[in-house]
Amino acid sequence: MKVLAAMSGGVDSAVAAARAVDAGHDVVGVHLALSRMPGTLRTGSRGCCTIEDASDAWRACEKLGIPYYTWDFSERFAEDVVEDFVSEYAAGRTPNPCLRCNEKIKFTALLERALQLGFDAVATGHYAAVRRGDDGHLQLHRAADDAKDQSYVLGVLTADQLEHCLFPLADTPSKDLVRAEAAERGLSVAKKPDSHDICFIPDGDTRGWLAERIDLEPGPIIDVQGRELGTHAGSQAYTVGQRRGLALGRPAPDGKPRFVLEVRPKDNTVVVGSRDMLAVDRITGIRASWAGQRLPEAASGEPFDCQLQFRAHGEIVPAVARVLGHDGEHGERWEIRPTRSLTGVAPGQSAVLYQGTRVLGQCAIDSARNAALTDAADPTPA
């Protein structure tokens, strides 16, 4: 099989490419240049896609004896990932840029070009598994190493894309074994730190980075009754669940901290309240997609049991979900009801659904609410 190995310059992608070679595939390595002005060096685990990363990818390919290329995807990355990140925050939502990069860059733009050039599959260093189900169709599953599992950020993959995905690290029990294997193979990236931050905000200051790209203007901070408690420097810089940085002069009646409950960019308002008001038991998702075949319940709208994960490496919660329908603006819409209340759920995040280790699919969270609190404030039936 002719395989294009996506080489990030890290240890995972290097070992994944090496295993593809060992499996007898005809492997070509490619590093994606995602920035027009990449930094020369990394700082620990901050950033990626630097000149240093490109050099590390080239050295790994040279060690493996496979061809190496660099493809410039910087314009596509800027439009589909960076600009999307900014526009989502400007709309008061909290996006996941890694998931968007997988969706738009690695498994759309890269895979499309690979197929056009005659490759059969794209191999990456993601910790996830593609398996064939009893019905003969491919499914996406969690990796063997729960601590490194990356199936959440791959929940956007479609059935057609799964046919051309190769994840050689799927069954590796731990990252330590991957590093040990890299050292045995003589790969220079064996001890290279993982990248944990948003790659295009390497200093980790998301608020400062956004302030340079979004027109932030002062506005009111109010409670759920509409009383003004203070002012903010720009509503788009706040996220649901945030506690720090509110700088409210008026303490809560019970003396307890307040948290951001809602961001309203249209009127530049931030709504705050007590921790218990963050509890969410109803989620509505839009732009839903299935990672493989749709469940039979999708067509009928019947509820189905599942598990919910709404952030990378976050908690996994039993839930009941159903398909609400489809519209031209928002695509397929889902309703998800976790079996217990959740906190830290914000519009813009991705909700990924599982059954056991199998990834069912994902949606973008459009609204997250507490039915009891909402219905008490609004007597209109839900």
Rank of each mutant, 00 (worst) to 15 (best):
K2G: 02
K2Q: 08
S13W: 01
A16K: 04
A17T: 14
A17W: 11
A18K: 05
V21D: 03
H25N: 11
D26F: 02
V27R: 00
V30A: 13
H31Q: 04
R42E: 03
T43I: 13
G44R: 11
C49N: 11
E52R: 04
D56Q: 13
D56S: 12
W58D: 06
R59M: 07
P67Y: 06
F73N: 00
F77H: 14
V82W: 03
A91L: 10
N102T: 14
N102S: 10
T108Q: 03
E112A: 09
G118S: 03
F119T: 13
D120P: 07
A123W: 03
A128T: 11
A129K: 09
R131F: 05
R132Y: 08
G133V: 07
G136R: 07
D146K: 07
K148F: 06
S151K: 04
T158W: 01
A159L: 08
D160A: 14
L162P: 01
F167H: 09
K175T: 13
K191C: 12
D194S: 15
S195K: 06
H196L: 10
F200R: 07
D205C: 11
T206G: 02
L210N: 02
R213C: 01
D215A: 13
D215V: 15
G219H: 04
Q225K: 10
H232N: 01
H232D: 02
S235E: 07
V240Q: 00
Q242Y: 01
L246E: 00
L246K: 01
P257K: 00
P257I: 01
P257H: 00
P265K: 02
M277S: 09
I283D: 00
T284H: 05
A299E: 12
S300C: 13
I316V: 15
V317T: 15
V323H: 09
G328I: 15
T339Q: 14
Q349E: 09
A351W: 01
D366E: 08
D375T: 15
P379M: 08
P379Q: 10
